[in-house]
Design a protein around this nucleic acid. Sequence first.
RNA 1: GCGCCUGUAGCUCAGCUGGAUAGAGCAACGGACUUCUAAUCCGUAGGCCGCAGGUUCGAAUCCUGCCAGGCGUACCA
Length: 588
Amino acid sequence: MSVQKLRETILNKIYRATEKALGQIPEHLELDFPPNTDLGHFAVGCFPLAKQFRQSPVEIAKKIAKKITPDDVIQEVNISGPYLNINIFPDVLFGEFCSEIISKNNKYGESSVGQGTRGMVEYLSPNTNKPLHLGHLRNGALGMSISKILEATGHWVVKANLINDRGVHICKSMLAWKRWGSGSTPESEGLKGDHFVGTWYVRFAREADENQTIEDDVQIMLQQWEADDPKTVKLWKTMNNWVYDGFAETYKNFGLEFNVFYYESDTYKVGKDVIQKGLEENVFSKDDHGNTVFHLPVAEFGQEKGGEAKKVTLLRPDGTSLYITQDIATSILKIEEHKLYFSIYVVGSEQEHHFKCLFQILSSLGYEWAKDCYHLSYGMVYLPEGKMKSREGKIVDADVLIAEIKKLAADEIRQRDPEGRLSDDEINHRAEKIGIGAIKFYLLRVRPTQSINFDPAESISFDGFTGPYCQYAYARIFGILTKAQDSASNLQDCDFSLLGNAEELLLLQKLIQFPEEINNAVQGFNPSKIAVHIFNTAKAFNQFYNKHHVLRAENEKLVTARLALIKATAIVLRKGLNLLGIEVLENM
RNA sequence: GCGCCUGUAGCUCAGCUGGAUAGAGCAACGGACUUCUAAUCCGUAGGCCGCAGGUUCGAAUCCUGCCAGGCGUACCA
């Protein structure tokens, strides 16, 4: 019997009992969990029936309970006010769920609700003039996680990175290097490429404070770039490649993957063609200043004080393109190149208006798929001193943060290994997984709409509601399973009727809820649902672990049953953490 | 001004498709390692769920108004 079948069996039983007691089949009932395990294994609230049968939920519960007779699945039904609390025979309850989880293994929790539809998740979208910072890490963690969650729910995901590789800001670092760099390279300075280029961006800002004329020089350089001046283009390519090498290292360290890269330098010109077409079809128009503009529908966007429709500028009078011009082109390119059914943009909440306009423009241009474009908006990351501003140097550098937390993890590991049995390689390997796990969990544990007040101490903590806490629970289980050898695979010999104490029940409940949480996460584009649930699962395990023995349980049959339960737990912990982009460790 | 987001324990946040006594982590205090990994567990303390109305048998959750903070508000990205 499958888990789904078990749930249906229980509900059907209640439906039939209701029919017997009240003469009609109930319209809708849901199987829930009681607030604590003493009350029962499952609960059904009778509130929805009150209207249908014109009786109080308490009365209804009483009447239904009388008509439920125990069978080989349902052990007993207790009423508590308007609730029916149902107990299942432990061998059925634990047996069905543990067997299913263990046999599905890494597939447990997955679903096919996506029906194989293909979609794109665009995330990170860095500029090529400076290194990645904490904000990028939140974006990256979100983008990776939501991609994995979509895949787990039956979607086909293309992960894309839209590189902002052109514009004034890029020219600033180029100009500074050209003028003061005297041929230095990342190698010669011993710097990661993106950091190297970042230093010239900073240098420019410093020089510009004292000498306004270099701002004009940057404009000249931009024009040269747009005119395909060979020297300028060569410099641009060289510096961008330095940055890409640097980024690639960070992607690898932080576990960010991409299937496709888009470059604004490729798409910004395509945008102009689309605008021209829209102009011909009267979707766009020219305003008094010569701007090409789009008038936003008043119904959705409201109007200006003067009563006019609000507008978006798509091309300047001189024909140069803007941010949104490029985005229009890229949006179309993505859909056409990859035959997408949906397109997700992981971008900060400060751009909500931009995406609302973008999707409206696409829709007005006649692209029906505009309704399948989503802006996964997330809140800002604030530092204790305020919003991060890279130009003012108030940032947390991604590479620095990763290195720092890795070092802390390594210190912690060494402390636990006073005899020094671990090799440096092993310590390094563990520190990496633990450190990255800590950062990702810290960034994903709150829902995306929440802004994060970055607390350095909290972000590097390994205790409590953290990634390492969850990884630790997994490592503990792995330790037990290793000691137990293969006895856990012997499911046929398991006597699950021996399970059923409060800790075991709570743990099983978490395992049962897992697939539902994945569903919640995908529906709200909200990985924090999984982070919270995995933490609760790890906590339930730790509580069980501290109160009961597995290998030294009272008898051999109980040992086997508990081994199956914790094996199922390990599967859920690993799957959940993986959906957050976090790896598990077998030893900590 | 308008739009979106946020407001829950000292701090950081869950809970928000309405339902059983509002939960967790951190910080504080007290306890548990000759026992499967103490990155753990147990206990104590800590709440006008921003305020005021409304809907409902029932509201942290839904609606309205207000207050506070953040972000945005074509011709930056």
